[in-house]
Every structure is written in structure tokens, then in C-alpha cells.
Amino acid sequence: MEIMKKLFLTGIGLLFAVTLTFAQSAESQEEARKKASELTERLQLTPEQQGSVHEIILDGYKQKDALKADKTITEEVKKERLKEGTKHSHNRIKEILTPEQKDRFENWVKEHKAKHKDH
């Protein structure tokens, strides 16, 4: 009887974890889509650039979700790794932009940082 109870609770825990992961994933995909759409409009990205930028942003959100879920590292380390991940994503995006687009991207990054600093 005790084993059945433990198995049941383990199963419920696993189901909860999978549901939470799926919810984070769906939310991350939606956020990545919004940000890529904003950058497409702002930077006038080509269709090829759009796909690449979306993948880079989505990858960044997935890494962010994994960091947030990691209970083995401190909040300070998480913040530092999040910063590094953002910087890496920005560098990857800049690699596929034209010089004119890079200038607009830099302005967008500055505006984005200022906007989030207020929160």
C-alpha cells in the first residue's frame, strides 16, 4: 500500500513537472515570436534573417528557462549567466545584420534596457 502511494505521488509530481515545462515552453515560444516580429519590423529583416533571428531568440528563451529551473546554482550566478546569454544572443543576431540594421538593433537594445530598468 505504501509503495502504491509513493508511486502515485511520484507520478503526480512528474505530471506536474511536465505540465510546467510545457507551459514555460509555450510561453517562451510566444515571447520569442513577439520579439522576432518586433525586430523584423524595426530592422526590416529579410525572410531569411527573420527565421535566424527567431531561432536565436527562441534558443535564448530556452536557455533562460533552463537556468531559472536549475536549483543547483545561486541567484547571483543565474543573473550573471542570463546576462552572458543575452550578450551572446545579441552578438549572434548582429552577425546576420547589415551595418544599417546593426545601428538600429543597437538603438533597440538601448531602448529595451531602459524600458526594463524602469520595471
Results as ranks from 00 to 15, higher is better:
Ala23Leu: 13
Ala23Asn: 14
Gln24Val: 10
Gln24Phe: 12
Ser28Lys: 05
Glu31Arg: 11
Ala32Leu: 09
Arg33Gly: 11
Arg33Thr: 14
Arg33Phe: 14
Lys34Ser: 09
Lys34Leu: 12
Lys34Met: 12
Ser37Arg: 13
Glu38Cys: 11
Arg42His: 13
Leu43Trp: 03
Leu45Cys: 02
Leu45Trp: 00
Leu45Gln: 00
Leu45Arg: 00
Gln49Glu: 06
Gln50Asp: 13
Gln50Trp: 10
Gln50Ile: 05
Gly51His: 10
Gly51Pro: 01
Gly51Asn: 11
Val53Gln: 02
Glu55Asp: 12
Ile56Arg: 01
Ile56Tyr: 06
Leu58Glu: 06
Asp59Gln: 11
Asp59Thr: 10
Gly60Val: 02
Tyr61Ala: 07
Lys62Ile: 01
Lys62Phe: 02
Asp65Met: 04
Leu67Asn: 02
Leu67Glu: 05
Lys68Ala: 11
Lys68Trp: 14
Ala69Leu: 03
Ala69Pro: 00
Thr72Tyr: 08
Thr72His: 06
Thr74Trp: 11
Thr74Gly: 12
Glu75Ser: 10
Glu76Cys: 09
Glu76Ser: 10
Val77Arg: 09
Glu80Asn: 07
Arg81Ile: 05
Leu82Ser: 01
Leu82Gln: 01
Lys83Glu: 07
Lys83Asp: 06
Thr86Pro: 02
Lys87Cys: 08
His88Asp: 05
His90Leu: 11
His90Glu: 13
Asn91Met: 10
Asn91Gly: 07
Arg92Leu: 01
Ile93Pro: 00
Ile93Cys: 04
Lys94Pro: 01
Lys94Gln: 10
Lys94Met: 03
Glu95Phe: 03
Ile96Met: 08
Ile96Asn: 01
Ile96Glu: 03
Leu97Gln: 01
Thr98Glu: 06
Thr98Lys: 03
Pro99Asp: 14
Gln101Arg: 13
Gln101Pro: 02
Gln101Phe: 11
Lys102Ala: 05
Lys102Ile: 09
Lys102His: 09
Lys102Ser: 08
Lys102Glu: 06
Asp103His: 12
Phe105Gln: 01
Phe105Ala: 07
Phe105Ile: 02
Lys110Thr: 15
Lys110Arg: 15
Glu111Arg: 14
Lys113His: 15
